[in-house]
Every structure is written in structure tokens, then in C-alpha cells.
Computed example of a mutant assay.
Amino acid sequence: MGFRRVGTGEHAVLVLHGWFGSSRSWQALLPHLDREAFGYVFLDQRGYGDRRGETGRYSIAEAAGDVLAAAGELGLERFSLLGHSMGGSVMQRVYADAPERVRALVGISPVPASGVPFDEQTWELFAGAADSPGNRRAIIDFTTGNRLTGTWLDAMVRHSLEHSDRDAFAACLPAWAHTDFHTEVEGAGVPVQVIAGRHDPALGAETVRATFGAWYPNLELEIFPDAGHYAMDESPVALATRVERFLGRQP
């Protein structure tokens, strides 16, 4: 399994990246984490990061199975999950498959367990991103409110191109967009925190309230005023503070 460990704390947190990310895409967050209280494990999905070249179905269920396999390899009986975007769908699938092992869920602009609806024009933009760096840049710009520097956008595109296989990237889109298992998590009592960026037009507060808010009675929603879809880059100090404050309350 591809993973990176940060911290030696008793509270294990498995960290799951988004569609454009990898286990290395959390660098801005690392200096602000409490490494004595928490032990973070940053995972790569198949076809991403250290797992480039590893084939599979690239489904949400397969990714969740890989997370549980990594937890077993690491000897973790119980853990929390921190998932960004696509990783937010995967973390909910892990919970649905092994609820007794999950202490808490934290989603950063997470994809709901119902998937994400697209109109035809937006789907064409996203589907074309596998072969078009320009599409990738436009998506990242759009999901952060068309307000961030081009230098950062270009770095995000480079990271995506260098840390994901084309076929894995392409296959992951319908996986996170079209997989619907929300009936399996409705009414779940697990503690859930969701961080939504005010400048995220797709997975912002309104979407979270209509999905996570309807399914998880113990949801805590935080709206970050200075973030879009990538709070770990846009508001790293605030993100570390809010996440660890929430996780520190969980038994």
C-alpha cells in the first residue's frame, strides 16, 4: 500500500485525497498538525502517487477496501477518516463497510454518498480533463471561485498530471460522480464534521446541508469564508485547528 505517516499520537487518522490530489497534496497542512496527539496516515488510491501503475476497477468500493487493507497492514483496529472531495465518498464507503472501526468522519468539500449530478456542459468539461491540462486548470479555477493566482492553479495541474495515471484519473470521475450508496448511511450515528468553502460552487454549504445534513444526525458543518474546494491549501491553519478540535472530542 502507498502511504505516508505523520505523527505518533494514539488517535489514528487515515487521510484520503481528492480527484486532483495524492498523498503528497497535503503539504501546506503538515506544519500545523499536532503530531503528539494524532497519527496521520496519508494514503494513495490505485493509480495515484506511489501507486501509479497499479491497476484495478477504480471504484469507490475498491478504494474503500484498499483503505481497510491499509488499516489492517498498519495494525489499526479503530481510526478516524479525513477525506477531501472524492476521498469524502471513499471515507463514507469505509464507514458503511466497517462502522465499528470508525471513530469519526471529517470531510473537506466531500462528495456525498449519493454522487454528484452534472449538466451536459459541465460533464464534458470534467470528462475531458483526463486528456486536457486546460480542462483541469479550468475546473480547479471554477471550484475555487475564479479568485486565486495562476501560479497556484498551474502547480495544482502539474501535481495532478505528475501524480496520477491517465486511465485511473479518467475512471475515477464516474466512480465518484455516479456511485450512490446514501441509503446505507442514512441515520448513521457516527460523529461527522464537514468543512465547506464559501467559494466552492458545487460542494458548498447548500449541498452539504441537503445531503450530509439529511443523513447524519451528528453532523457539524463549518463554513470557511476564505476557501473554495481546497481548504488544505487555501486555509491550512484554520483547517488543522478545526479538524483537530473536532477529532480531539471523539472517544
Rank of each mutant, 00 (worst) to 15 (best):
F3T: 12
V6R: 11
V6E: 13
H17S: 03
A28S: 14
L29F: 06
L30E: 09
P31N: 03
P31W: 07
H32G: 06
D34K: 07
E36T: 13
A37Q: 12
G39R: 15
G47T: 15
R51F: 07
T55W: 01
R57N: 01
Y58V: 08
I60E: 12
E62R: 09
G72P: 09
L74W: 14
E77H: 13
R78P: 12
R78L: 10
S80E: 10
S80Y: 11
S80L: 08
L82R: 02
G83W: 11
M86N: 02
G87N: 10
G87W: 10
V90D: 03
V94Q: 06
D97V: 08
A98V: 09
E100Q: 14
V111D: 08
S114F: 01
G115M: 01
A127S: 14
A127I: 09
P133R: 07
P133D: 13
R136I: 12
F142W: 14
N146I: 00
L148W: 10
T149R: 10
G150I: 08
L153W: 14
D154T: 02
V157R: 04
R158T: 13
H159W: 05
H159C: 05
L161K: 02
R166C: 04
L173V: 10
W176A: 05
A177C: 03
D180R: 03
F181S: 01
H182V: 08
A188F: 01
A196W: 10
R198G: 07
P201Y: 06
V208M: 11
G213C: 05
G213I: 00
A214H: 09
Y216F: 15
E220Q: 15
L221Q: 14
G228V: 06
E234P: 10
E234I: 07
V237S: 09
A238K: 15
A240Y: 14
T241A: 13
T241Y: 14
V243S: 12
V243H: 13
E244Q: 15
R245L: 13
G248D: 07
Q250P: 11
